[in-house]
């Protein structure tokens, strides 16, 4: 009962969005009238949405790659050198994005990255950097928990006694052990990056606006068009959630067999 009502609360807006996106017109009626694919075709033919869509994919991809490259060594080094303290650092890092509201962070970017020393405001690289720092905590937390849970320190000590060098240990033992949590982290990172609006909206230039930033403009237009553009973002998020569920299940299976 409780779950049923709650699921209705979750799905009603989603269903209305989908229904609205296929409706011919929807003004002051309970549900839209007519069936039409024109809103999706409109989005497809809209150059600013096409550019924004590609820009979002590009930024998400770059963010994912950089976050992985930065966070795996960071989480590994911190956990191995600090033990329990690393868990505290992980928690501290994890609260960062909430303790510092996105609008404040964005404001900080406007101040510091419009100076002559760092004149990067409006560049795509800066958008990626902002996405990296907002998503890094999620990856970091996942990895630290996993490194401790898997007792990598013991496995590494064993490998060391068997003659493995640091590089061999890292590539034979550490990376394969962490593959599930890296994947799970990546799903979250890319999902957040694709949906990120609050910081990007403040720091993007006109030509490198991401999909959510452009999406906001659509809200002031026709209902069908707004629905279609939103459903596209919804679809991307759902793919992310599905991938997340699958990796979580694979990880759970792998842990059972250990």
């Amino acid at each position: 009962m409780v779950i049923g009502i709650y699921l209705l609360y979750i799905f009603l807006p989603i269903i209305l969005l989908i229904v609205g996106s296929f409706g011919e017109s929807w003004t002051n009626t309970l549900l839209p009238t007519g069936f039409s694919l024109r809103w999706y075709l409109d989005v497809w033919h809209d150059p600013s949405f096409r550019r924004a869509f590609l820009m979002s994919l590009y930024v998400a991809l770059g963010t994912s790659a950089i976050v992985t490259a930065l966070t795996v060594p960071l989480a590994y080094a911190l956990t191995r050198s600090m033990g329990r303290t690393a868990t505290l650092v992980a928690r501290l890092v994890a609260v960062m994005p909430i303790a510092a509201p996105p609008v404040v962070l964005g404001f900080g970017y406007i101040i510091i990255f419009s100076t002559d020393t760092f004149p990067w405001l409006g560049t795509t690289a800066l958008i990626v950097a902002a996405h990296v720092v907002t998503t890094l905590p999620y990856m970091f937390q996942t990895l630290v928990a996993d490194i401790r849970h898997l007792h990598l320190d013991r496995l590494e000590l064993a490998a060391e006694s068997l003659g493995a060098s640091f590089g061999q240990r890292f590539f034979h033992i550490v990376l394969p052990s962490l593959r599930h949590s890296i994947l799970a982290g990546l799903v979250v990172v890319s999902a957040i990056s694709i949906g990120e609006f609050q910081v990007t909206n403040l720091i993007a230039g006109f030509l490198n606006r991401t999909y959510p930033v452009v999406l906001l403009q659509a809200f002031y237009g026709a209902t069908g068009f707004a629905c279609a553009t939103t459903v596209i973002l919804l679809f991307l998020a759902a793919i992310g959630a599905g991938a997340g569920a699958l990796t979580a299940r694979a990880a759970a299976r792998a842990k059972e067999s250990v």
């Binding site: 007792h151 013991r154 496995l155 000590l157 064993a158 060391e160 006694s161 068997l162 003659g163 060098s165």
Partner: peptide, 18 residues
């Protein structure tokens, strides 16, 4: 350690799970 060529058996076995 890795050049000492000593066989170590650990309390937790430390077998590589993968």
């Amino acid at each position: 350690a890795r050049e000492r060529n000593m066989g170590v058996v650990f309390q937790s076995y430390a077998l590589f799970p993968l």
